[in-house]
Amino acid sequence: MTLHLRIWRQAHAQASGRFVSYTVKDLSPDMSFLEMLDVLNEELTKKGEAPVEFDSDCREGICGTCGFVIDGVAHGPRRGRTVCQLYLRDFRDGQSVTLEPFRAKAFPVIQDLVVDRSAFERIIAAGGYISVDTGSAPDANSILIPKEVAEGAFDAAACIGCGACVAACPNASASLFVSAKIAHLALLPQGQPERHRRVLKMVAQMDRENFGNCSNHGECEAVCPKNISIKQIALMRREYLTEIWKNFRAL
């Protein structure tokens, strides 16, 4: 099959970018979308042109490295999948497809489809953990966790940190990502002691990082490859407001 691609090309962070069109032929529908880009890059290399830079690593939907926008949708047309989990059978022969990087103030473009998501790291460093030094843990079965609770925490912990939620949000909010971590830890008994300071610190860091506010558009949930639910954002809000209220009353 054949695909007509329009791809955002940008030489470096300061350069102004533009769309460039390419046609890739003789593709197999069983090929993954990134393998199709590999083919394009082989052709460009042979012609002496600069290959299209994009990030990927595991190519099976778990590391969160890949991600760009396909025809206006972060991670492309298939719900619940990352870019690396798309196959050409998800597209039509002869289709025109537009690729551009995740766009958000907090995610500056590095080159072509590669962006800088290090803001996520700083949010996690602000409190996305349980403080337990190596060696100090009690026997694993001394903490009983009902199956439903463990499963609920898992649903939130499944976030791969890809940033699609930010790219999809009209306000470029990081709320889905941040709430997933807060919910994961707030739902577990081990997460209780730091529950209060965690939410305050992580939200404060999110606000410092140029992300926008959440105004309930729900676009994040729709593109999230791990189906993280916006109910986690509601949970984060509740946690946050409770803390703010407590602090206010303590004044």
Binding site: I130, T134, A137, P138, D139, A140, I145, A150, H184
Partner: peptide, 16 residues
């Protein structure tokens, strides 16, 4: 033990 204390959501039985 260490991983559970960190909040790793290992699979559980109904009894927890």
């Amino acid at each position: 033990d260490q991983c559970v204390a960190q909040g790793v959501p290992f699979a559980r039985e109904y009894g927890g």
